[in-house]
Lab assay of single mutants.
Amino acid sequence: MDVFMKGLSKAKEGVVAAAEKTKQGVAEAAGKTKEGVLYVGSKTKEGVVHGVATVAEKTKEQVTNVGGAVVTGVTAVAQKTVEGAGSIAAATGFVKKDQLGKNEEGAPQEGILEDMPVDPDNEAYEMPSEEGYQDYEPEA
């Protein structure tokens, strides 16, 4: 019985440690998101679009440190934060509304985080759909 109880105690310690790591990862992701939003706020009209992409990228980098179902929630929060940063930029006159959601080359930025393969159960990952990809044929 002692062996059984000791095993359960060790398992509990492992769960607590994993929860603490997840909590730490979420806190880091939130900190990076805040950094990115402050970065966007300090940019001029020309830099705002690039700044919004930076927020998304920093958040995406930190999301990889967070495991399990938390990833889905962090990704949703990050996307809403990026959308909010863009709205703030438009409201303050840093950028025109028609410039939001495009990178410096004018290509749409939507789907940055949505296409990231995420499995809350950590069982399997699927690649994003290939609808947006084109076949590449090298020139002879």
Score class of each variant (00 low, 15 high):
48 V>I: 10
23 K>C: 10
83 E>V: 14
139 E>Q: 08
133 Y>C: 10
134 Q>I: 04
128 P>K: 12
61 E>A: 06
95 V>H: 12
34 K>L: 04
132 G>M: 12
30 A>K: 03
74 V>R: 01
139 E>V: 14
103 N>T: 07
1 M>R: 00
87 S>I: 14
50 H>E: 03
59 T>A: 04
86 G>D: 04
67 G>P: 02
19 A>F: 14
51 G>A: 03
131 E>R: 08
80 K>W: 07
69 A>E: 03
39 Y>R: 06
81 T>I: 14
76 A>Y: 13
15 V>E: 00
21 K>R: 15
87 S>W: 15
117 P>N: 06
68 G>V: 09
87 S>A: 14
25 G>T: 15
119 D>Y: 08
38 L>R: 06
131 E>P: 11
63 V>W: 14
73 G>E: 04
109 Q>Y: 09
31 G>D: 05
41 G>V: 08
137 E>L: 07
94 F>K: 04
89 A>V: 12
113 L>S: 06
96 K>P: 04
114 E>K: 11
80 K>E: 01
126 E>W: 04
22 T>M: 14
138 P>R: 09
1 M>N: 00
36 G>Y: 12
21 K>P: 00
128 P>W: 12
15 V>K: 00
13 E>R: 15
135 D>R: 14
123 E>Q: 05
51 G>S: 04
35 E>Q: 03
11 A>Y: 01
63 V>E: 00
83 E>I: 04
20 E>I: 15
80 K>G: 04
60 K>M: 14
4 F>G: 00
107 A>R: 04
62 Q>N: 14
107 A>K: 10
6 K>H: 05
95 V>M: 01
108 P>M: 04
3 V>T: 01
3 V>D: 03
78 A>L: 10
108 P>Y: 10
67 G>M: 12
54 T>S: 05
47 G>N: 07
27 A>Q: 11
83 E>R: 08
2 D>I: 01
88 I>R: 05
113 L>W: 08
117 P>C: 08
92 T>M: 02
89 A>L: 11
7 G>H: 14
43 K>D: 00
90 A>Q: 15
33 T>K: 00
110 E>P: 13
128 P>D: 08
139 E>K: 13
140 A>N: 07
73 G>N: 10
108 P>A: 05
55 V>F: 09
30 A>D: 00
107 A>T: 14
15 V>M: 04
2 D>G: 03
108 P>V: 06
132 G>T: 11
80 K>H: 07
121 D>I: 11
23 K>Y: 05
139 E>Y: 13
68 G>Q: 02
85 A>M: 12
14 G>E: 07
83 E>P: 10
51 G>F: 07
31 G>P: 01
15 V>H: 00
7 G>A: 14
13 E>L: 04
106 G>E: 09
14 G>H: 13
132 G>P: 04
39 Y>H: 04
68 G>I: 13
26 V>E: 00
78 A>V: 13
77 V>Y: 03
35 E>V: 05
109 Q>H: 06
120 P>N: 04
81 T>E: 01
87 S>R: 11
22 T>Q: 01
9 S>D: 03
116 M>V: 01
9 S>R: 14
107 A>N: 07
94 F>N: 13
110 E>N: 08
83 E>Y: 11
86 G>A: 12
96 K>H: 11
92 T>E: 03
66 V>S: 01
98 D>K: 11
112 I>N: 05
112 I>W: 11
129 S>V: 06
32 K>I: 09
133 Y>S: 02
5 M>K: 06
48 V>G: 01
127 M>E: 09
30 A>H: 02
123 E>L: 10
60 K>F: 02
88 I>D: 02
71 V>F: 05
121 D>A: 13
52 V>E: 00
56 A>H: 04
106 G>C: 08
94 F>T: 13
85 A>C: 14
54 T>W: 12
50 H>A: 10
108 P>K: 02
140 A>D: 15
119 D>C: 10
107 A>I: 09
100 L>E: 06
15 V>I: 10
89 A>M: 04
58 K>D: 00
33 T>M: 13
69 A>F: 13
22 T>K: 00
137 E>R: 14
24 Q>R: 07
71 V>Y: 15
104 E>G: 07
140 A>V: 10
32 K>E: 01
66 V>M: 05
38 L>Y: 15
53 A>G: 06
8 L>Y: 02
97 K>T: 03
108 P>W: 14
97 K>C: 04
70 V>F: 02
1 M>Y: 00
25 G>S: 10
89 A>W: 15
84 G>K: 13
109 Q>M: 11
137 E>H: 08
4 F>E: 00
15 V>F: 05
108 P>L: 08
10 K>L: 10
92 T>V: 13
31 G>R: 12
60 K>A: 14
86 G>R: 13
87 S>H: 10
102 K>L: 06
27 A>S: 06
114 E>R: 13
131 E>W: 15
58 K>N: 07
44 T>I: 12
13 E>A: 15
12 K>S: 04
123 E>Y: 13
45 K>R: 10
133 Y>Q: 09
69 A>W: 15
137 E>C: 11
105 E>N: 12
81 T>P: 02
138 P>Y: 07
66 V>F: 13
25 G>Y: 15
84 G>W: 12
84 G>N: 02
72 T>E: 14
95 V>N: 11
92 T>C: 15
33 T>W: 08
23 K>M: 06
71 V>P: 01
5 M>A: 04
63 V>A: 09
9 S>E: 11
31 G>A: 10
40 V>C: 06
83 E>W: 15
29 A>V: 09
57 E>Q: 08
74 V>S: 01
16 V>L: 08
7 G>Y: 06
15 V>P: 00
35 E>F: 12
27 A>G: 09
42 S>N: 10
48 V>T: 03
106 G>N: 10
102 K>W: 11
19 A>D: 00
51 G>H: 12
59 T>F: 04
25 G>I: 09
116 M>C: 13
55 V>W: 05
44 T>N: 01
104 E>F: 15
121 D>N: 08
64 T>N: 06
28 E>T: 09
1 M>I: 00
129 S>H: 07
112 I>T: 05
118 V>I: 06
19 A>L: 11
91 A>K: 06
102 K>E: 03
69 A>N: 09
80 K>M: 06
29 A>K: 06
81 T>L: 11
116 M>I: 10
134 Q>A: 06
37 V>I: 05
137 E>S: 09
135 D>K: 12
68 G>K: 15
73 G>C: 15
80 K>C: 07
10 K>V: 14
74 V>I: 05
129 S>I: 06
54 T>C: 15
49 V>M: 07
136 Y>A: 08
103 N>E: 09
125 Y>H: 13
32 K>N: 02
22 T>H: 01
128 P>M: 08
80 K>P: 02
5 M>N: 05
63 V>N: 00
132 G>D: 11
93 G>I: 15
139 E>N: 13
16 V>H: 08
75 T>F: 12
96 K>S: 10
3 V>L: 15
12 K>V: 11
134 Q>C: 14
74 V>L: 14
47 G>Q: 07
9 S>W: 07
107 A>Y: 01
34 K>I: 04
28 E>P: 02
